[in-house]
């Protein structure tokens, strides 16, 4: 596996994804869909896709976003850019990622980030599936998102 075994989502994970299962079954929310966005190598490309995501969320007229980023390191550059594009448009977002020893970049809109580090070591443990999204993480993030949306009047 690439960067890194404990933070990568397997094909099995995508099919069982607690993020999708919990949100779709929450009768107080209207799940519009799941946007899959790639994380390119080049920084310019990262900002290109982040802008597209911002415009997409704006066009869909969503009230809130749950955003997950796989891996760590340079993938957090796009992660931060995505949240900024959403924040600029007044769309509240809650992020879930393996922050480990802190994110490489941050911005003013990244107030609610849930760290998926389960081992508490702040580093890649090389154990497959260990630092992935669990039900507990999702329930926590939905709670925060609902609060944020309420503050915005939704």
């Amino acid at each position: 596996m690439g960067i890194g075994p404990s933070t990568k989502e397997t094909t099995l994970h995508h099919m069982n994804d607690p993020m999708v299962e919990i949100v779709r079954n929450d009768k107080s929310l209207d799940l519009v869909g799941i946007a899959v966005v790639g994380s390119p190598q080049d920084n310019l490309e990262k900002f290109y896709v982040a802008k597209r995501l911002g415009i997409l969320a704006e066009a869909l007229g969503v009230d809130g976003v749950l955003i997950y980023a796989e891996g760590f390191g340079n993938q957090h550059i796009d992660f931060a850019a995505h949240i900024e594009e959403l924040g600029k448009r007044g769309i509240p977002a809650v992020g879930l990622t393996f922050a480990g020893n802190g994110l490489v970049v941050e911005n003013e809109y990244m107030e609610d980030i849930i760290d998926l580090d389960k081992a508490g070591e702040g580093m890649e443990t090389e154990i497959v599936g260990q630092n992935c999204v669990t039900k507990k993480d999702v329930i926590k993030s939905i709670k925060i998102l609902k609060k944020k949306m309420k503050r915005k009047g939704r």
Partner: peptide, 19 residues
């Protein structure tokens, strides 16, 4: 209809070779 609209975003590796 009428409920707050939520979008899930999954940012996944797109750099090639295991991404």
């Amino acid at each position: 209809e009428g409920r707050p609209k939520v979008l899930i975003v999954k940012e996944l590796g797109g750099q090639g070779a295991m991404h």
